[in-house]
């Protein structure tokens, strides 16, 4: 397991991508999974930065290997409850005039991840998001 802690800022994305790429290389994870892993992490992290603006806490991230891929946990401290797995689906079949990028991030998370779990502890206002990405699931069918 590898753990990193990142400042709650979009400027942290470069460090986060370095963290994920090092983990994939060091643990011999299929490198074709990396773009999808980065995308899921970015969308979840960006969501925390832009929608948990009251919190200034750093964001811990843990990565571990699972059979055929990775499991990643992001922790949002001092956060209001917001279960991302309950957000309604985005209709991507709308006409171009009606399309809006809002909600596309979590839509892509669902499409690319094998599974996404949301856990919230009211006692310490902590949200934990856990996802898995393995070979053969959405987004790496090349």
């Amino acid at each position: 397991m590898k753990r990193g802690v990142f400042k709650r800022s979009l400027d942290s994305l470069e460090s986060i991508f370095l963290f994920t790429s090092e983990f994939v290389r060091e643990n011999h994870v299929d490198p074709s999974l990396l773009p999808a892993i980065d995308l899921i992490v970015e969308e979840l992290f960006t969501n925390m930065v832009e929608h948990s603006s009251a919190s200034t806490a750093d964001v811990p991230m843990e990565m571990s290997t699972v059979d055929g891929g990775v499991e990643v946990t992001l922790t949002d401290e001092d956060a209001d409850p917001f279960d991302i797995t309950k957000v309604p689906e985005v209709d991507v079949e709308r006409a171009v005039e009606e399309l809006d990028p809002g909600g596309l991030g979590l839509h892509l998370v669902r499409k690319f991840a094998d599974s996404v779990e949301y856990h919230y502890q009211f006692s310490n206002r902590q949200a934990r998001i856990v996802f898995r990405k393995t070979a053969g699931s959405g987004g790496d069918d090349v």
């Binding site: 773009p35 995308l39 892509l108 959405g138 790496d140 069918d141």
Partner: peptide, 16 residues
């Protein structure tokens, strides 16, 4: 590339 193609497909951008 394949990553971009997947993102465009899942977001419906391959229609527009």
């Amino acid at each position: 590339n394949s990553h971009l193609r997947d993102v465009f497909k899942y977001s419906g951008f391959d229609r527009i």
